[in-house]
Design a protein around this nucleic acid. Sequence first.
DNA 1: CAAAATTAATCAAACGATTGATTAATAAAA
DNA 2: TTTTATTAATCAATCGTTTGATTAATTTTG
Lengths: 216, 216
Amino acid sequence: MEKEKTDKKDHILDVAEKVFSELGYDGASTRLISGEANVNMAMLNYYFGSKEGLFIAIFERKINSFKTLLQNINEDETMSSWDKLSLCVDKYVDRVVLNSYFHKLVNREVSLSKHSEINDTITNIIMTNILEFKKVIQDGVNNGSFFEGADTELCVATIFGTKNFIINTPQLASRLFEKDILSAAYLENEINERTKIYMKRLLKSYLVTNNDQTNP
Amino acid sequence: MEKEKTDKKDHILDVAEKVFSELGYDGASTRLISGEANVNMAMLNYYFGSKEGLFIAIFERKINSFKTLLQNINEDETMSSWDKLSLCVDKYVDRVVLNSYFHKLVNREVSLSKHSEINDTITNIIMTNILEFKKVIQDGVNNGSFFEGADTELCVATIFGTKNFIINTPQLASRLFEKDILSAAYLENEINERTKIYMKRLLKSYLVTNNDQTNP
DNA sequence: CAAAATTAATCAAACGATTGATTAATAAAA
DNA sequence: TTTTATTAATCAATCGTTTGATTAATTTTG
Protein backbone atom coordinates (compact mmCIF):
# COMPACT_ATOMS: atom_id res chain seq x y z
CA MET A 1 0.00 0.00 0.00
CA GLU A 2 2.76 2.34 0.85
CA LYS A 3 4.19 1.62 -2.55
CA GLU A 4 0.90 2.07 -4.32
CA LYS A 5 0.27 5.36 -2.61
CA THR A 6 3.54 6.71 -3.89
CA ASP A 7 2.68 5.45 -7.33
CA LYS A 8 -0.66 7.18 -7.21
CA LYS A 9 0.85 10.42 -6.03
CA ASP A 10 3.43 10.15 -8.76
CA HIS A 11 0.74 9.50 -11.30
CA ILE A 12 -1.14 12.60 -10.21
CA LEU A 13 2.05 14.62 -10.41
CA ASP A 14 2.74 13.33 -13.91
CA VAL A 15 -0.72 14.28 -15.10
CA ALA A 16 -0.72 17.62 -13.30
CA GLU A 17 2.68 18.49 -14.77
CA LYS A 18 1.37 17.91 -18.25
CA VAL A 19 -1.93 19.72 -17.75
CA PHE A 20 -0.25 22.69 -16.10
CA SER A 21 2.25 22.88 -18.94
CA GLU A 22 -0.51 22.89 -21.52
CA LEU A 23 -3.04 25.22 -19.90
CA GLY A 24 -0.99 27.21 -17.43
CA TYR A 25 -1.52 27.32 -13.68
CA ASP A 26 -4.65 29.46 -13.79
CA GLY A 27 -6.08 27.70 -16.81
CA ALA A 28 -5.81 24.24 -15.32
CA SER A 29 -8.66 23.56 -12.90
CA THR A 30 -8.35 21.01 -10.13
CA ARG A 31 -11.42 19.30 -11.56
CA LEU A 32 -9.74 18.80 -14.89
CA ILE A 33 -6.51 17.57 -13.38
CA SER A 34 -8.27 15.07 -11.14
CA GLY A 35 -10.41 13.99 -14.06
CA GLU A 36 -7.40 13.44 -16.30
CA ALA A 37 -5.71 11.50 -13.54
CA ASN A 38 -8.88 9.48 -12.83
CA VAL A 39 -8.92 10.32 -9.15
CA ASN A 40 -11.46 12.03 -6.98
CA MET A 41 -11.04 15.77 -6.76
CA ALA A 42 -10.64 15.68 -3.01
CA MET A 43 -7.59 13.47 -3.39
CA LEU A 44 -5.56 16.41 -4.65
CA ASN A 45 -6.17 18.25 -1.40
CA TYR A 46 -5.79 15.08 0.60
CA TYR A 47 -2.34 14.44 -0.83
CA PHE A 48 -1.04 17.90 -1.56
CA GLY A 49 -3.12 20.19 0.66
CA SER A 50 -4.03 22.65 -2.07
CA LYS A 51 -3.67 23.43 -5.74
CA GLU A 52 -0.57 25.43 -4.98
CA GLY A 53 0.72 22.56 -2.89
CA LEU A 54 0.28 20.28 -5.88
CA PHE A 55 2.12 22.76 -8.02
CA ILE A 56 4.97 22.99 -5.55
CA ALA A 57 5.11 19.20 -5.26
CA ILE A 58 5.79 19.01 -8.99
CA PHE A 59 8.86 21.11 -8.45
CA GLU A 60 10.06 19.36 -5.35
CA ARG A 61 10.01 16.10 -7.24
CA LYS A 62 12.27 17.51 -9.94
CA ILE A 63 14.44 19.60 -7.73
CA ASN A 64 17.11 16.98 -7.22
CA SER A 65 17.85 16.71 -10.90
CA PHE A 66 18.28 20.47 -10.95
CA LYS A 67 20.83 20.63 -8.20
CA THR A 68 24.39 20.44 -9.31
CA LEU A 69 24.51 19.16 -12.83
CA LEU A 70 26.38 22.09 -14.30
CA GLN A 71 28.32 23.06 -11.21
CA ASN A 72 30.48 19.95 -11.22
CA ILE A 73 31.47 20.57 -14.81
CA ASN A 74 32.27 24.17 -14.08
CA GLU A 75 34.50 23.33 -11.11
CA ASP A 76 36.63 20.91 -13.11
CA GLU A 77 40.09 22.50 -13.42
CA THR A 78 41.37 20.17 -16.10
CA MET A 79 38.91 21.11 -18.84
CA SER A 80 39.23 23.96 -21.29
CA SER A 81 36.56 26.64 -21.31
CA TRP A 82 35.24 25.42 -24.61
CA ASP A 83 35.05 21.81 -23.47
CA LYS A 84 33.18 22.94 -20.38
CA LEU A 85 30.70 24.95 -22.37
CA SER A 86 30.30 22.15 -24.88
CA LEU A 87 29.58 19.63 -22.15
CA CYS A 88 27.19 21.97 -20.36
CA VAL A 89 25.22 22.44 -23.54
CA ASP A 90 25.02 18.69 -24.11
CA LYS A 91 23.89 17.95 -20.59
CA TYR A 92 21.42 20.78 -20.50
CA VAL A 93 19.76 19.99 -23.82
CA ASP A 94 19.45 16.37 -22.76
CA ARG A 95 17.71 17.31 -19.56
CA VAL A 96 15.36 19.80 -21.15
CA VAL A 97 14.26 17.36 -23.82
CA LEU A 98 13.72 14.68 -21.22
CA ASN A 99 11.57 17.03 -19.12
CA SER A 100 9.99 19.17 -21.76
CA TYR A 101 6.62 19.48 -20.02
CA PHE A 102 8.28 20.60 -16.86
CA HIS A 103 10.49 23.16 -18.55
CA LYS A 104 7.57 24.59 -20.45
CA LEU A 105 5.63 24.89 -17.23
CA VAL A 106 8.54 26.53 -15.44
CA ASN A 107 9.11 29.08 -18.13
CA ARG A 108 5.52 30.13 -18.35
CA GLU A 109 5.14 30.49 -14.62
CA VAL A 110 8.33 32.48 -14.24
CA SER A 111 7.24 34.85 -16.98
CA LEU A 112 4.26 35.94 -14.91
CA SER A 113 4.67 39.02 -12.78
CA LYS A 114 2.69 37.88 -9.79
CA HIS A 115 4.94 37.62 -6.79
CA SER A 116 4.68 34.42 -4.81
CA GLU A 117 6.92 32.18 -2.81
CA ILE A 118 6.89 29.53 -5.50
CA ASN A 119 7.71 32.06 -8.17
CA ASP A 120 10.78 33.14 -6.25
CA THR A 121 11.81 29.54 -5.68
CA ILE A 122 11.60 28.74 -9.36
CA THR A 123 13.45 31.87 -10.31
CA ASN A 124 16.30 30.96 -8.02
CA ILE A 125 16.51 27.44 -9.41
CA ILE A 126 16.66 28.64 -13.00
CA MET A 127 19.10 31.38 -12.11
CA THR A 128 21.50 28.77 -10.79
CA ASN A 129 21.71 27.28 -14.26
CA ILE A 130 21.79 30.63 -16.00
CA LEU A 131 24.61 31.94 -13.87
CA GLU A 132 26.52 28.71 -14.28
CA PHE A 133 26.49 29.18 -18.05
CA LYS A 134 27.42 32.79 -17.61
CA LYS A 135 30.39 31.82 -15.47
CA VAL A 136 31.70 29.31 -18.02
CA ILE A 137 31.55 31.85 -20.81
CA GLN A 138 32.88 34.71 -18.70
CA ASP A 139 35.83 32.61 -17.55
CA GLY A 140 36.58 31.75 -21.16
CA VAL A 141 36.55 35.40 -22.12
CA ASN A 142 38.75 36.31 -19.17
CA ASN A 143 41.36 33.63 -19.82
CA GLY A 144 41.56 34.54 -23.47
CA SER A 145 40.16 31.37 -24.95
CA PHE A 146 36.99 33.13 -26.04
CA PHE A 147 36.56 36.21 -28.19
CA GLU A 148 37.18 39.15 -25.87
CA GLY A 149 34.39 41.27 -27.31
CA ALA A 150 31.82 38.57 -26.68
CA ASP A 151 28.53 39.61 -25.13
CA THR A 152 28.43 37.07 -22.33
CA GLU A 153 24.94 37.85 -21.11
CA LEU A 154 23.28 37.76 -24.49
CA CYS A 155 25.14 34.58 -25.28
CA VAL A 156 23.42 32.98 -22.30
CA ALA A 157 20.13 34.45 -23.46
CA THR A 158 20.67 32.69 -26.78
CA ILE A 159 21.33 29.32 -25.17
CA PHE A 160 18.22 29.45 -23.02
CA GLY A 161 16.17 31.29 -25.60
CA THR A 162 16.79 28.87 -28.45
CA LYS A 163 15.87 25.95 -26.25
CA ASN A 164 12.82 27.77 -24.87
CA PHE A 165 11.54 28.54 -28.33
CA ILE A 166 11.42 24.87 -29.21
CA ILE A 167 10.00 23.69 -25.90
CA ASN A 168 7.63 26.53 -25.08
CA THR A 169 6.08 27.10 -28.48
CA PRO A 170 6.10 23.69 -30.16
CA GLN A 171 3.25 24.72 -32.47
CA LEU A 172 5.48 27.42 -33.95
CA ALA A 173 8.51 25.16 -34.01
CA SER A 174 6.52 22.42 -35.69
CA ARG A 175 5.52 24.69 -38.52
CA LEU A 176 9.04 26.09 -38.77
CA PHE A 177 10.59 22.62 -38.92
CA GLU A 178 7.69 21.18 -40.87
CA LYS A 179 7.72 18.30 -38.42
CA ASP A 180 5.70 17.44 -35.35
CA ILE A 181 7.82 18.75 -32.53
CA LEU A 182 5.18 17.78 -30.02
CA SER A 183 5.88 14.15 -30.75
CA ALA A 184 8.11 12.95 -27.95
CA ALA A 185 9.83 10.53 -30.28
CA TYR A 186 10.90 13.18 -32.77
CA LEU A 187 11.90 15.50 -29.98
CA GLU A 188 14.11 12.92 -28.31
CA ASN A 189 15.50 11.26 -31.39
CA GLU A 190 16.09 14.11 -33.79
CA ILE A 191 15.77 17.53 -32.24
CA ASN A 192 17.89 16.58 -29.28
CA GLU A 193 21.08 15.79 -31.21
CA ARG A 194 20.44 18.39 -33.83
CA THR A 195 20.11 21.15 -31.25
CA LYS A 196 23.31 20.11 -29.56
CA ILE A 197 25.27 20.17 -32.81
CA TYR A 198 23.80 23.47 -33.87
CA MET A 199 24.23 25.15 -30.52
CA LYS A 200 27.87 24.18 -30.24
CA ARG A 201 28.66 25.24 -33.77
CA LEU A 202 26.91 28.53 -33.24
CA LEU A 203 28.69 29.23 -29.98
CA LYS A 204 32.05 28.09 -31.29
CA SER A 205 31.88 30.31 -34.34
CA TYR A 206 30.95 33.29 -32.18
CA LEU A 207 33.19 32.70 -29.19
CA VAL A 208 36.18 30.89 -30.60
CA THR A 209 36.48 31.31 -34.36
CA ASN A 210 35.27 34.88 -34.28
CA ASN A 211 38.22 37.07 -35.26
CA ASP A 212 36.96 39.50 -37.87
CA GLN A 213 34.70 42.18 -36.53
CA THR A 214 34.86 44.68 -39.31
CA ASN A 215 31.28 45.83 -39.44
CA PRO A 216 28.82 44.42 -36.91
CA MET B 1 -17.10 63.03 -27.98
CA GLU B 2 -16.27 60.69 -30.78
CA LYS B 3 -12.63 61.45 -30.20
CA GLU B 4 -12.82 60.86 -26.47
CA LYS B 5 -14.51 57.54 -26.94
CA THR B 6 -11.64 56.28 -29.06
CA ASP B 7 -9.23 57.56 -26.46
CA LYS B 8 -11.04 55.71 -23.71
CA LYS B 9 -11.13 52.49 -25.66
CA ASP B 10 -7.49 52.93 -26.42
CA HIS B 11 -6.76 53.54 -22.77
CA ILE B 12 -8.55 50.34 -21.81
CA LEU B 13 -6.62 48.45 -24.46
CA ASP B 14 -3.33 49.85 -23.19
CA VAL B 15 -4.09 48.81 -19.63
CA ALA B 16 -5.47 45.42 -20.63
CA GLU B 17 -2.43 44.71 -22.75
CA LYS B 18 -0.17 45.34 -19.81
CA VAL B 19 -2.24 43.39 -17.28
CA PHE B 20 -2.64 40.44 -19.64
CA SER B 21 1.08 40.41 -20.28
CA GLU B 22 1.82 40.38 -16.58
CA LEU B 23 -0.78 37.92 -15.33
CA GLY B 24 -1.73 35.94 -18.40
CA TYR B 25 -5.19 35.73 -19.90
CA ASP B 26 -6.65 33.48 -17.21
CA GLY B 27 -4.86 35.24 -14.40
CA ALA B 28 -6.15 38.68 -15.35
CA SER B 29 -9.73 39.17 -14.18
CA THR B 30 -12.05 41.64 -15.82
CA ARG B 31 -12.50 43.25 -12.43
CA LEU B 32 -8.80 43.91 -12.12
CA ILE B 33 -8.47 45.23 -15.64
CA SER B 34 -11.40 47.59 -15.26
CA GLY B 35 -10.06 48.65 -11.88
CA GLU B 36 -6.61 49.41 -13.26
CA ALA B 37 -8.17 51.33 -16.13
CA ASN B 38 -10.50 53.18 -13.77
CA VAL B 39 -13.59 52.27 -15.72
CA ASN B 40 -16.71 50.44 -14.73
CA MET B 41 -16.55 46.71 -15.21
CA ALA B 42 -19.50 46.71 -17.56
CA MET B 43 -17.65 49.00 -19.93
CA LEU B 44 -15.42 46.18 -21.02
CA ASN B 45 -18.42 44.24 -22.24
CA TYR B 46 -20.07 47.35 -23.56
CA TYR B 47 -17.10 48.18 -25.73
CA PHE B 48 -15.63 44.79 -26.53
CA GLY B 49 -18.48 42.34 -25.99
CA SER B 50 -16.54 39.94 -23.81
CA LYS B 51 -13.22 39.27 -22.17
CA GLU B 52 -12.14 37.38 -25.24
CA GLY B 53 -13.37 40.25 -27.40
CA LEU B 54 -11.16 42.60 -25.41
CA PHE B 55 -8.26 40.25 -25.90
CA ILE B 56 -8.85 40.07 -29.62
CA ALA B 57 -9.20 43.86 -29.83
CA ILE B 58 -5.68 44.17 -28.45
CA PHE B 59 -4.43 42.17 -31.39
CA GLU B 60 -6.51 43.88 -34.01
CA ARG B 61 -5.05 47.18 -32.93
CA LYS B 62 -1.51 45.93 -33.45
CA ILE B 63 -2.17 43.83 -36.50
CA ASN B 64 -1.30 46.54 -38.99
CA SER B 65 2.21 46.97 -37.70
CA PHE B 66 2.64 43.24 -38.10
CA LYS B 67 1.67 43.10 -41.71
CA THR B 68 4.49 43.46 -44.15
CA LEU B 69 7.47 44.86 -42.35
CA LEU B 70 9.84 42.06 -43.23
CA GLN B 71 8.27 41.07 -46.53
CA ASN B 72 9.30 44.26 -48.29
CA ILE B 73 12.90 43.78 -47.27
CA ASN B 74 12.83 40.19 -48.40
CA GLU B 75 11.48 41.03 -51.83
CA ASP B 76 14.22 43.56 -52.54
CA GLU B 77 16.36 42.09 -55.32
CA THR B 78 19.21 44.54 -54.96
CA MET B 79 20.27 43.59 -51.45
CA SER B 80 22.64 40.81 -50.48
CA SER B 81 21.36 38.03 -48.24
CA TRP B 82 23.40 39.28 -45.37
CA ASP B 83 22.20 42.85 -45.73
CA LYS B 84 18.65 41.59 -45.80
CA LEU B 85 19.10 39.54 -42.68
CA SER B 86 20.89 42.36 -40.96
CA LEU B 87 18.11 44.79 -41.75
CA CYS B 88 15.41 42.33 -40.72
CA VAL B 89 17.10 41.86 -37.36
CA ASP B 90 17.32 45.61 -36.83
CA LYS B 91 13.71 46.21 -37.71
CA TYR B 92 12.44 43.30 -35.72
CA VAL B 93 14.36 44.11 -32.55
CA ASP B 94 13.13 47.68 -32.76
CA ARG B 95 9.55 46.60 -32.99
CA VAL B 96 9.77 44.08 -30.21
CA VAL B 97 11.36 46.52 -27.81
CA LEU B 98 8.75 49.12 -28.67
CA ASN B 99 5.91 46.64 -28.01
CA SER B 100 7.42 44.50 -25.31
CA TYR B 101 4.16 44.03 -23.37
CA PHE B 102 2.40 42.89 -26.48
CA HIS B 103 5.09 40.46 -27.50
CA LYS B 104 5.21 38.96 -24.06
CA LEU B 105 1.46 38.52 -24.11
CA VAL B 106 1.55 36.95 -27.55
CA ASN B 107 4.23 34.48 -26.68
CA ARG B 108 2.57 33.30 -23.52
CA GLU B 109 -0.79 32.84 -25.18
CA VAL B 110 0.63 30.97 -28.12
CA SER B 111 2.46 28.61 -25.81
CA LEU B 112 -0.83 27.38 -24.38
CA SER B 113 -2.29 24.25 -25.90
CA LYS B 114 -5.92 25.26 -25.78
CA HIS B 115 -7.29 25.53 -29.27
CA SER B 116 -9.23 28.67 -30.05
CA GLU B 117 -9.79 30.96 -32.96
CA ILE B 118 -7.63 33.64 -31.48
CA ASN B 119 -4.83 31.21 -30.82
CA ASP B 120 -4.80 30.21 -34.45
CA THR B 121 -4.89 33.82 -35.54
CA ILE B 122 -1.93 34.71 -33.40
CA THR B 123 -0.01 31.68 -34.55
CA ASN B 124 -0.48 32.66 -38.16
CA ILE B 125 0.65 36.21 -37.51
CA ILE B 126 3.82 35.10 -35.79
CA MET B 127 4.48 32.45 -38.38
CA THR B 128 4.52 35.11 -41.06
CA ASN B 129 7.52 36.68 -39.39
CA ILE B 130 9.17 33.39 -38.60
CA LEU B 131 8.90 32.13 -42.16
CA GLU B 132 10.14 35.44 -43.48
CA PHE B 133 13.33 35.07 -41.48
CA LYS B 134 13.57 31.47 -42.58
CA LYS B 135 13.31 32.50 -46.20
CA VAL B 136 16.06 35.10 -45.90
CA ILE B 137 18.45 32.62 -44.38
CA GLN B 138 17.48 29.77 -46.66
CA ASP B 139 18.00 31.95 -49.72
CA GLY B 140 21.41 32.91 -48.43
CA VAL B 141 22.34 29.29 -47.98
CA ASN B 142 21.04 28.39 -51.42
CA ASN B 143 22.86 31.19 -53.24
CA GLY B 144 26.10 30.34 -51.48
CA SER B 145 26.52 33.51 -49.47
CA PHE B 146 25.82 31.66 -46.21
CA PHE B 147 27.53 28.60 -44.77
CA GLU B 148 25.99 25.64 -46.59
CA GLY B 149 25.82 23.42 -43.50
CA ALA B 150 23.82 26.05 -41.60
CA ASP B 151 20.80 24.86 -39.67
CA THR B 152 18.28 27.32 -41.01
CA GLU B 153 15.42 26.39 -38.72
CA LEU B 154 17.41 26.49 -35.52
CA CYS B 155 18.93 29.75 -36.63
CA VAL B 156 15.46 31.23 -36.71
CA ALA B 157 14.77 29.66 -33.33
CA THR B 158 17.79 31.51 -32.00
CA ILE B 159 16.66 34.87 -33.35
CA PHE B 160 13.20 34.57 -31.84
CA GLY B 161 14.37 32.70 -28.77
CA THR B 162 17.02 35.22 -27.75
CA LYS B 163 14.57 38.06 -28.09
CA ASN B 164 11.87 36.09 -26.24
CA PHE B 165 14.16 35.34 -23.35
CA ILE B 166 14.71 39.03 -22.72
CA ILE B 167 11.10 40.07 -23.23
CA ASN B 168 9.25 37.13 -21.69
CA THR B 169 11.34 36.58 -18.60
CA PRO B 170 12.66 40.01 -17.66
CA GLN B 171 13.14 38.90 -14.06
CA LEU B 172 15.68 36.35 -15.21
CA ALA B 173 17.24 38.70 -17.71
CA SER B 174 17.51 41.42 -15.07
CA ARG B 175 19.48 39.16 -12.77
CA LEU B 176 21.60 37.92 -15.65
CA PHE B 177 22.42 41.43 -16.83
CA GLU B 178 22.49 42.81 -13.30
CA LYS B 179 20.31 45.63 -14.58
CA ASP B 180 16.61 46.36 -14.47
CA ILE B 181 15.39 45.07 -17.80
CA LEU B 182 11.82 45.90 -16.86
CA SER B 183 12.70 49.55 -16.98
CA ALA B 184 11.45 50.79 -20.32
CA ALA B 185 14.25 53.32 -20.50
CA TYR B 186 17.02 50.77 -20.14
CA LEU B 187 15.26 48.42 -22.51
CA GLU B 188 14.92 51.05 -25.21
CA ASN B 189 18.21 52.83 -24.75
CA GLU B 190 20.67 50.05 -24.04
CA ILE B 191 19.30 46.59 -24.66
CA ASN B 192 17.87 47.55 -28.00
CA GLU B 193 21.15 48.51 -29.65
CA ARG B 194 23.14 45.94 -27.79
CA THR B 195 20.89 43.12 -28.93
CA LYS B 196 21.12 44.25 -32.53
CA ILE B 197 24.90 44.33 -32.46
CA TYR B 198 25.14 40.98 -30.71
CA MET B 199 22.59 39.25 -32.89
CA LYS B 200 24.22 40.36 -36.11
CA ARG B 201 27.68 39.41 -34.93
CA LEU B 202 26.42 36.04 -33.78
CA LEU B 203 24.64 35.34 -37.05
CA LYS B 204 27.49 36.61 -39.17
CA SER B 205 30.06 34.45 -37.45
CA TYR B 206 27.83 31.41 -37.84
CA LEU B 207 26.46 32.01 -41.33
CA VAL B 208 29.20 33.95 -43.07
CA THR B 209 32.53 33.60 -41.36
CA ASN B 210 31.94 29.99 -40.42
CA ASN B 211 34.42 27.93 -42.42
CA ASP B 212 36.00 25.48 -40.02
CA GLN B 213 33.74 22.69 -38.91
CA THR B 214 36.26 20.21 -37.64
CA ASN B 215 34.49 18.90 -34.58
CA PRO B 216 31.00 20.15 -33.80
C1' DC C 1 -34.33 78.88 -31.34
C1' DA C 2 -36.25 75.63 -27.71
C1' DA C 3 -38.62 71.40 -26.52
C1' DA C 4 -38.95 66.64 -27.34
C1' DA C 5 -37.15 62.31 -28.80
C1' DT C 6 -33.35 59.40 -29.52
C1' DT C 7 -28.88 57.57 -28.86
C1' DA C 8 -24.65 56.71 -26.34
C1' DA C 9 -22.24 56.21 -22.12
C1' DT C 10 -21.97 54.89 -17.40
C1' DC C 11 -23.15 52.80 -13.17
C1' DA C 12 -24.36 49.67 -9.05
C1' DA C 13 -26.32 45.42 -8.37
C1' DA C 14 -27.14 40.93 -9.31
C1' DC C 15 -26.87 36.75 -12.25
C1' DG C 16 -25.61 31.79 -13.01
C1' DA C 17 -21.53 29.20 -13.49
C1' DT C 18 -17.18 27.71 -11.97
C1' DT C 19 -13.46 27.88 -8.94
C1' DG C 20 -10.56 25.67 -4.99
C1' DA C 21 -11.62 23.72 -0.82
C1' DT C 22 -14.05 21.12 2.86
C1' DT C 23 -17.14 18.06 4.93
C1' DA C 24 -19.20 13.80 6.69
C1' DA C 25 -19.83 9.21 5.43
C1' DT C 26 -18.04 5.02 3.68
C1' DA C 27 -14.57 1.53 2.19
C1' DA C 28 -10.21 -0.63 2.55
C1' DA C 29 -6.11 -1.78 4.86
C1' DA C 30 -3.32 -2.30 8.92
C1' DT D 1 -10.40 -1.83 15.81
C1' DT D 2 -7.83 1.84 14.39
C1' DT D 3 -5.83 4.10 10.70
C1' DT D 4 -5.75 5.31 6.06
C1' DA D 5 -7.90 6.05 1.66
C1' DT D 6 -11.78 7.36 -1.11
C1' DT D 7 -16.17 9.16 -2.27
C1' DA D 8 -20.28 12.32 -3.21
C1' DA D 9 -22.14 16.34 -1.61
C1' DT D 10 -21.50 20.85 -0.32
C1' DC D 11 -19.14 25.28 0.87
C1' DA D 12 -18.00 30.21 0.23
C1' DA D 13 -15.58 32.93 -3.02
C1' DT D 14 -14.73 34.54 -7.40
C1' DC D 15 -15.40 34.41 -12.19
C1' DG D 16 -17.34 36.72 -16.64
C1' DT D 17 -21.51 38.54 -17.85
C1' DT D 18 -26.11 40.80 -17.80
C1' DT D 19 -29.47 43.71 -16.16
C1' DG D 20 -32.28 47.96 -15.41
C1' DA D 21 -31.73 52.53 -14.24
C1' DT D 22 -29.49 56.95 -14.81
C1' DT D 23 -26.89 60.52 -16.90
C1' DA D 24 -24.88 62.94 -20.87
C1' DA D 25 -24.86 63.99 -25.59
C1' DT D 26 -26.96 64.29 -30.10
C1' DT D 27 -30.70 64.64 -33.32
C1' DT D 28 -35.27 65.65 -34.57
C1' DT D 29 -39.19 68.26 -34.39
C1' DG D 30 -42.29 72.23 -33.67
